[in-house]
Amino acid sequence: MANLPENAALRRTLALGPALAIIGIFMLIPVIIMASYSFLEAKSFGGVNWVFSGDAYVQLFYERMLDDSLRLSPGYLIIIGRSVALALVAMVCCLLVGFPVAWFIARQPLRQRNMWILLITIPFWTNQLVRTFAWIIILGRNGVIEVPFRWTGLLAPEQTLGLMYSNFAITVGLTYTFIPLMVLPIYASLEKLDFSLVEAGADLYSSRWETFSNIIIPLSKPGIIAGCLLVFIPSLGAFIQPDLLGGGKNLMLGTLVQFQFSTARNWPFGSAIAMILLAFVVVFLMLYARASRGSKSLEVH
């Protein structure tokens, strides 16, 4: 339809205008401004001086001593490392639980399948903050898990299991919050999988494990990759879970960014960390685009 009348092209532009303008002005430009902030000098109480400076990025690796010399400081690298590690662990947990669940749902009759999907979708769309908060009541001191230990006297009143404010609590929170994002795409690809291929595998002497690794896994790879990405990216930048469940010590990238903007008031440094987070996302999205191109060539032709 290259030769649409001119007014149709105009109409199209007008229709696309508002959405593009809003996202362009209030999303794209802010990210660009933030990127440039990361190369400016910090003002003492928030804001920036318009002077170019690489300090924000230097600060990630080095500590500036009193005599202005730089000393390698692992503090922020540890936070980056923790973010990546916890996001990976959460992703693996989601995969280990999510795949079998998705398989189970995909093998149910249609009516029950839809019911299951609804049941998994509902918590996902309910308030993340509130759902994470619920875990404080479960994991916390005197929480649901500790109660039986106290009743049986296994746990003295002054003792605690110490489940809260730990990397463990953060991982539970991340897994809990994002696991629907693992189940749904895997389910989508398993539902499309022709079950007679599994039968063909068994017919051709594959054991259960061989059928799983030679046929089911390769054919549901697009769903698995999408699920891993959908869990990993928000986990990496998570704020609520490390903030509520991790306590002050277990910072992740998300909480660090927020801290720099709200408490430390070092905007260039906060922007630099946000840029690093964004860089991670871009890299993973690019890897995903590549992987999904690869698997698409299997289907089309």
Binding site: M27, V31, M34, P234, G237, Q258, A274, L277, V281
Partner: peptide
């Protein structure tokens, strides 16, 4: 590209959107 821009807010981590908007 148009589609990419419209779905951009889905891809940028929330915390990044938050501080970028604040900065803006």
């Amino acid at each position: 590209a148009t589609l990419g821009i419209i779905t951009l807010p889905l891809m940028v981590p929330e915390i990044v959107t938050a501080v970028a908007t604040l900065v803006f």
